Computed example of a mutant assay.
Amino acid sequence: MKGSVHFRKDRGVWFVLWYHKLERKEYKIYRYKGELMYSERVAQKLLAVMQGDTENGTFRIEKFTGHGWTDTVPYLYEWLDVVKNDLSPATYKDYRNSIKNHLEPFFTEHPFQLHEIQYDVLRKLLNSINREGKGRANVMYCLHACLTYAWRSRRIPDTPPFPEKKHYRIQEKTITWLPEDRQLSILEKILKEHQPIFYWLKYHLRRPGEAMALHRVDYDSVNDLFIVRRSISARTLVNRTKTGVEHVIPCHSLFRPFIKKVRKDLSPYFFTCSNSRSEGKRYTSSIMNRIWKEACKKANEQISMYDGLKHSSCSQYVNEKNMALSDLQLITDHARLDSVKRYAKVEVSRRRELMEGNVVKLKKVRE
């Protein structure tokens, strides 16, 4: 078996002498798990690990020559700093919180190195995360992204398999939505100066962050359409949508009257708010949520802005206007049909009508 253990008298440390056949290069490995080897026993242990990896076909010299990069906690922070500019502000914030509040405490208590993170370690980590299903998944997604980066950088031999979806205990929430008459009742309670942005969301089925980030140049008046290519992430304007895809949205005919009501000022934003303190007087999440809640209170409704606008409009198309799911997918520009299937879940009142209707039919048959 290749490799041998030697002692260096001038430094008082042991090392493993290893010849890398593919590189035709000889390596002297002085550290095991980041620490200098002051005993022959530790050096022999390192040699056994290297020989074991060779037999298993998982040997990577980078695993043994790294200078502290294989320690999980510092690598997580170094990785996040490198990829920061590739992430949206919201994703960066979520990754940072995942590392600080969950990954760092776990790997400080259980000091596994990157290459030692395997399925059993990931199951322990998952069980230690004190968050709801989706929150637990977000922490694991963060670590998965980091390990994929480490694998591409040849810091680890491969990316370990992650726990199956069933172990995340993610419970799909039932969509809450309103029939169109009740939705319109809320919109009518909004002050007229603020109505355009809310009606735009109703008729174009987009995210609030995209409406807040919409610029005047994003409206093509010649072809009467909007190009959605920006969004607001963690209160910051980003020149990309959440999915990284530009969406061309035809202007709904019922929204055209509101275009004339949009404020005409020097702001680059399509929708502006006179009492906003943000750049260009653009709307913010706090302003929009406050306006929406006030309108809901006047209309005697209690529903979130996202559910009351996008979810409600999508559900109305399927459950009230009998639109095919494939057509709804075309309107919303979803990449997968599965993303719109949840809107086809008929509301409880409609189920009751169908059930009672069947009862009536059975009575007539018996008579």
Rank of each mutant, 00 (worst) to 15 (best):
Y219T: 09
I232E: 02
V238C: 07
R230Q: 10
S221N: 12
S233F: 01
N239A: 10
I227W: 02
D220K: 14
E210N: 08
E210M: 02
S233R: 01
I227S: 14
P250Y: 03
T236S: 05
H204Y: 08
H247S: 09
K202I: 08
H215P: 07
H215F: 12
Y203E: 06
C251K: 07
P250D: 05
F226K: 05
I249V: 15
V222A: 14
F226W: 06
E246H: 15
R216P: 12
A213E: 01
N223M: 13
P208G: 01
D218A: 11
P208I: 02
D218V: 12
T241C: 10
K202N: 06
S233T: 02
Y219C: 13
R240N: 11
T236D: 00
N223D: 15
G209S: 03
A213P: 06
S231W: 00
G244Q: 05
D224A: 14
L201R: 01
P208R: 01
Y219N: 07
T236G: 03
S221C: 14
E246T: 15
R240W: 02
N223L: 14
R230M: 09
P208F: 00
H215R: 10
V228C: 13
R216D: 11
K242L: 02
T236R: 04
V245H: 12
N239H: 12
C251L: 11
L205R: 04
R240G: 10
G209M: 00
D220N: 15
R235C: 06
R229G: 15
S231R: 00
L205F: 11
V222F: 09
V222I: 15
G244F: 05
T243N: 15
L225V: 14
P250K: 02
H247E: 09
I249N: 00
T241E: 03
I232Q: 01
I249G: 04
V228T: 10
L237I: 14
L214G: 01
E210R: 05
G244I: 09
H204E: 04
P250N: 09
T241Q: 07
S221L: 14
I232R: 00
R206C: 09
D224G: 13
P208L: 02
T236I: 10
H204C: 11
C251I: 14
D218Y: 05
D218H: 13
H204I: 05
G209V: 03
P208K: 00
R229N: 15
Y203C: 06
L214P: 02
G244A: 12
E210V: 07
H204W: 08
S221F: 10
L225D: 05
V248N: 13
V217H: 12
R216F: 07
Y219Q: 10
R235V: 03
L225T: 11
R207Q: 05
K242Q: 04
L214N: 03
G209I: 01
S221Q: 15
V238P: 01
R206S: 11
L225S: 13
V217W: 09
D220R: 11
S233V: 03
K242P: 05
T236H: 05
V238G: 04
I232M: 06
M212K: 00
D224V: 15
M212V: 03
K202H: 07
D220F: 07
H215L: 13
R206E: 02
I227D: 10
R229I: 05
R229Q: 15
R206H: 06
R206V: 04
N223C: 14
T241V: 11
G209R: 00
